[in-house]
Nucleic acid binder design. Structure first.
Lengths: 387, 387
DNA sequence: TTCATTTAGTTCACGTTGTAGACTAAATAT
DNA sequence: ATATTTAGTCTACAACGTGAACTAAATGAA
């Protein structure tokens, strides 16, 4: 139900509007903000003043000389108060990243290690060490950590990682194993990477992010908002049916995309022991490797055709392993999309590689907290006023 | 961008909150409304008073005796002021329907006629006659028509029906050919039928409505809102790939769902000249008809598996021709869904037949206007106060 | 240099809206 | 009858945005 609005909510909303306008529109003067938001100069002045006091906005020096009239004072987002912590558990590494309100990276670290088959307790202990280091540094910078989000690859619901096929985990609740001074939320890697691309990378208001790992996940962004389905499990692109009579899949079905374009299938078909080896083979023009990529690309194209027909996507971003394989995948994928979608829609969707690569998930994770602050700055303003 | 809020918007929003609470929560007293909305009794009293004056709410007699204390006066949605007009052009008929704010049908008419190959001008002239009749009756009832929506089967954008394969139309702009005293909006039949089921039928907050006609369309409802994709063309379930090497489809691809479960494919495989004939054959246990339905059901199941994996649907409603074929389709569809989705999710989505049948589209069309009034009653309140 | 002009930002009386609590109304329980 | 309970209204008040007057700080013309 839409919530009732009182004076307090009205103010909260207008704080958000002003902060958001600055966040999107670069440096803006109060006068420009009044024009953009439709609020009066006096209201904007009050709101900007409060946001500056709260440390969410900062005045840059007097602006743009050369024109007639008193020059306005521009305000920008301030990275001086709030920060957030993004965490990621991947098969091959652990990563943490601290972002400030402006999207600036204040701390980042990554520990390469093979997590395959490691016990959750052990992996999370190491992650906790990394996170503690990040929090210490953030504290040293005088920033307040507004929250933390952890990215894992596998279906997630209600704080539980149901299954992580690449790690061999089942029903793990990471927050219970992490002792950190901030609450840690959990979400799926593909979803968070999609948000990362949306806010800091190749994403736009509407697009599908495809995450090629052991499984193939996807994050769908609609109208600038992550779509997560009825129970939060949307985006299982890997089990979209590509050939009903195809190879048996671990999901119980057969002919799922994963059996054609999943990392294991790719490596097996390409006769390579690892992704770097596959890449090397591709670089030197190795036949089986090229064929493997081409047929994986066609399968991906078919699955994406179904997705585009259902969802009317106008942009697709390939991430995960597919980022590195993009030069060899994009041709077959585009070709299938173009021929299969040509009859129904003018132009096929734009296909691009991830711009953030392996950083997408931690950026999305930390960004989610940042964007929550941007979407509701009122508590920070109030707290600043009380102090 | 989120819009700035002033006092006027605050009030508009709270009017909406109160009206919406009554709309969803059946008859409610002012006291109950205060509790439900979180607004104070005095505010609710004022808002309810204004909504009653505007003719959007009505007081029913004093409520529920038997308990202690003064009995409250219950208010309900009032169907006495606003109405809306839903229109539909189908291959086999034209239909109009007038709804009031409560969802009550105030007028309905349907002209059976074969529109295949008819010129747009001719069909729309007949529709205009029907609509004029409906508007006259609405006027006689003292209702104000808040808007009209026309449902057509085919992709729609910006008031243009790009193509209607079953009618043989191309790039028609129906609003230009209709002379009516209310503006007429255009939308896709599957989308509007989905909304019809959502508001007045078998739909819930999240579900996929499948419309089996010549083509196979779908309307996706997420969080109670229709999802229409980047350019409004979402829901092309008919061109989800079911078998990449399958039969050639008119879209340029091959192995699309439509080539297996579209009306033409069904009739051809079932050896029946028409849908009634196919139904009769099914009723008497005719072999080819049963086989045709079973294999169409399996194809539909495969396409829906892909949809569920992508979108995490928990409910699917089969409409259009599939409503009548439901007894023969539901088995194969469910079987495929269950076996293919079992490994990943606890329970497969709930499958049901449309509850509204052929009325879904006009109900959704008229309902869309009604729900727009419910979502923003302020203009009606203001106008009532000025008069 | 001086002053008109232009644009930015602040101040303050005011209007609109929701709030809190006293008050009136209408029922049941004792 | 009277106490109790719940519904609904009324009124003084508070929160917040508005609008116009006002101050501030630049450019340009004389």
């Amino acid at each position: 139900m839409t919530q009732a609005v009182r004076h307090e909510e009205m103010r909260a909303r207008n704080l958000e509007v002003v902060l958001g306008a600055v966040g999107r529109g670069g440096p803006l003067t109060r006068a420009a903000l009044a024009e953009v938001t439709g609020l009066t100069k006096s209201t904007v002045s009050k709101l900007v003043g409060d946001l500056v006091d709260a440390g969410l906005l900062a005045e840059t020096g007097p602006a743009r000389a050369g024109e007639r009239g008193r020059p306005g004072v521009e305000v920008v987002l301030s990275g001086a108060r709030v920060a957030s912590l993004g965490l990621e558990i991947n098969v091959d590494y652990l990563a943490v990243r601290v972002l400030d309100l402006t999207g600036g990276v204040r701390f980042a670290a990554r520990r390469e290690r093979d997590n395959r088959g490691s016990r959750p307790k052990k992996v999370l202990a190491e992650l906790q060490a990394l996170a503690t280091e990040a929090l210490a540094e953030t504290h040293r910078l005088g920033l307040e950590v507004a929250g933390a989000v952890l990215a894992v690859s596998g279906p997630v619901g209600d704080g539980v990682l149901f299954t992580a096929p690449n790690l061999g985990w089942q029903d793990v609740r990471p927050a219970d194993l992490l002792r950190l001074p901030v609450p840690v939320e959990l979400d799926n890697e593909a979803n968070l990477a999609a948000l990362g691309e949306l806010w800091y990378g190749a994403g736009e208001r509407d697009f599908l992010y495809v995450s090629g790992e052991i499984g193939i996940g996807a994050g769908l962004v609609v109208n600038g908002v992550l779509y997560s389905g009825a129970t939060g499990l949307a985006g299982e692109l890997g089990h979209v049916v590509v050939a009903p009579e195809g190879a048996q899949c671990r999901c119980g079905g057969s002919g799922c995309l994963e059996t054609y374009a999943g990392q294991e299938a790719l490596l097996a078909a390409g006769n390579a022991p690892s992704v770097p080896a596959l890449l090397a083979a591709l670089e030197r023009g190795d036949g089986p490797a090229l064929t493997a990529c081409a047929s994986a690309g066609r399968a991906l194209g078919i699955a994406l055709t179904s997705a585009v027909n259902l969802l009317d996507l106008d942009r697709i971003v390939l991430g995960g392993v597919f980022t590195q394989l993009y030069p060899w995948l994009s041709g077959p994928v585009s070709e299938v999309l173009t021929t299969r979608l040509g009859g129904l829609r003018g132009t096929p969707p734009v296909l691009t590689a991830s711009r953030l690569g392996g950083d997408a998930a931690t950026l999305g994770a930390a960004g989610r907290v940042i964007h929550r602050v941007l979407a509701d700055p009122a508590p920070f303003v109030t707290r600043a006023q009380e102090a």
